[in-house]
Computed example of a mutant assay.
Amino acid sequence: MVDKNSPLPLYYQLEEQIKKTIETEELQPGDALPSERELSESYQISRMTVRQAITNLVNKGYLFREKGKGTFVSSQKFEQNLQGLTSFTEDMKARNLVPGSKLLHFEIYPADKDIRATLSLKDEELIYKIKRLRLANNEPIAVETSYLPVSLVPGLTPDILASSLYTYIENELELTIGHASQTVEAAIVDAEDQQHLHINKGVPVLLIQRETFLENGTPLELVRSSYRADRYKFKIDIERK
């Protein structure tokens, strides 16, 4: 129950209690939360206070609403540490999840000005454009678009992309991937990608742009990925120096 004599706001106390039931797995992903009326009567607090607690938990990703149906417990977010350079496949396997990929687009064409500048390519040099839907345990997590020089990664085919691209680059082509530069920002995706990711119009995603280099400094890849913000989070450890 909530303590009305506590200096902590009532909505915050309720929020913490609901969060605890989720974190201790008393409430499981997909479980329905009691209605605002039921929670209001159970805790003897106003429905406005209940609504504020629930809204905060929805905004933090613990809960999600379905219009006309109610409020439900969200699945746990996948977490990726930003300090290591791994492929999506490697990242999912490290979490004991089953990685999956659906090829949405595969094309070879001359690189445009921006791509040429990023990958240090000559005029009219050919690149691969690869767009894939990334899955974890068969759930859509991200839409990923990659650009790679054909001259650097020859022989790439849709069949090869059914497994790990990085494995092909390192094991078959014997190239050594060295480092990457990555940025993260909030964005809104178009209607097509909303459908791929199973998100509603206007829901923001985490837009990740990564430039990957070989050990000798040669640009290897430009990747732009739109991750579901309700299912994915990124972690970085920072030291004070």
Rank of each mutant, 00 (worst) to 15 (best):
V153H: 11
P158Q: 10
K69G: 02
R47E: 14
T167L: 11
I54C: 05
I54V: 15
E66K: 15
N137Q: 08
A229N: 03
E15R: 05
F234Y: 01
R37F: 03
E107F: 12
G70A: 00
T118G: 01
I108D: 11
I238A: 06
H179W: 15
D112N: 15
V2D: 03
K233F: 04
Y166R: 08
K4A: 07
G30A: 08
L133M: 09
G178R: 11
T183C: 06
Y109E: 12
K19N: 03
E26R: 04
V73L: 05
D237V: 08
R51N: 14
L148C: 09
Y166M: 11
K241H: 08
D237K: 06
L27H: 06
I130A: 11
F64W: 05
G155W: 03
Q13S: 02
Q182P: 00
G100S: 08
V203Q: 09
Q195N: 14
L97H: 08
Q17P: 00
D230P: 01
G70E: 00
A162T: 08
T24R: 13
G217T: 03
Y147H: 14
L175S: 06
I127L: 13
P7G: 07
P154A: 04
S46N: 07
T157I: 05
V143D: 00
S40Q: 02
S164Q: 06
L63W: 07
S146V: 12
K113I: 05
F78A: 15
G61A: 02
K122T: 11
E144C: 05
L197A: 10
Y128I: 14
E221R: 07
D190H: 09
P110T: 06
E90I: 09
L126F: 14
R228C: 03
S101W: 01
R224T: 08
M48A: 15
E36H: 10
R210Y: 00
I169E: 02
G30R: 05
M1G: 12
T71D: 05
Q52V: 07
M1N: 09
E25V: 03
L27Y: 15
N59T: 03
S163W: 03
Q195M: 12
Q76N: 14
A142T: 07
I160M: 01
N138S: 15
V203S: 07
Q28I: 12
S163C: 02
P34V: 01
V205F: 10
L27I: 03
R116F: 09
T55M: 10
E139N: 13
L103I: 12
N216P: 03
A111E: 04
V184H: 12
N59M: 02
L97A: 15
L197H: 11
S181C: 01
Q52R: 11
L33Q: 06
R228S: 13
I115E: 01
I169K: 01
L97W: 00
L206W: 05
N137M: 08
L222N: 06
V150D: 11
T212L: 11
E139V: 15
S42P: 01
Y12M: 13
F78W: 02
H196C: 03
E90A: 13
K201Y: 05
L119D: 08
T49D: 05
